[in-house]
């Protein structure tokens, strides 16, 4: 169900009902996040481990290269930052408190 950002309690279907099938893609899970991954380009070797491991397809890739992070869906699980080998031991993804990023 696509709910406008400024929707209030009068605007949403009652009792949490989901009235549109296949609507999970429209549910932006980014709101669950406490920490967000931040990309450090100089440490990135484009191995795309982050893209492979991300459970929410929140790593954006273009022409076989890391392009960015879709924060609308990134739940902040931190798997990408854990798996990132980085360059010479310096990670290309680090987790930062969402409000400090």
């Amino acid at each position: 169900m696509s709910v406008p950002k400024d929707a209030g309690w009068k605007d949403v279907p009652k009792a949490g009902r989901i009235l549109e099938p296949g609507s999970a893609a429209k549910y932006e899970t980014g709101g669950w996040r406490t920490y967000r991954p931040v990309h450090i380009p100089e440490n990135c070797i484009n191995c795309l481990f982050c893209w492979i491991y991300c459970p929410d397809q929140a790593i954006l890739v273009e022409d076989g290269k890391f392009k960015g992070i879709d924060y609308a869906y990134c739940k902040g699980c931190g798997i990408c930052a854990t798996e990132c080998p980085g360059k010479r031991g310096n990670k290309a993804l680090k987790m930062v408190l969402d409000e400090e990023a």
């Binding site: 209030g8 309690w9 949403v12 009652k14 009792a15 949490g16 709101g31």
Partner: peptide, 10 residues
């Protein structure tokens, strides 16, 4: 994210 709104409806 939405439980409070659904309880408000109730």
């Amino acid at each position: 994210d939405w439980n409070f709104e659904h309880k408000r409806q109730q």
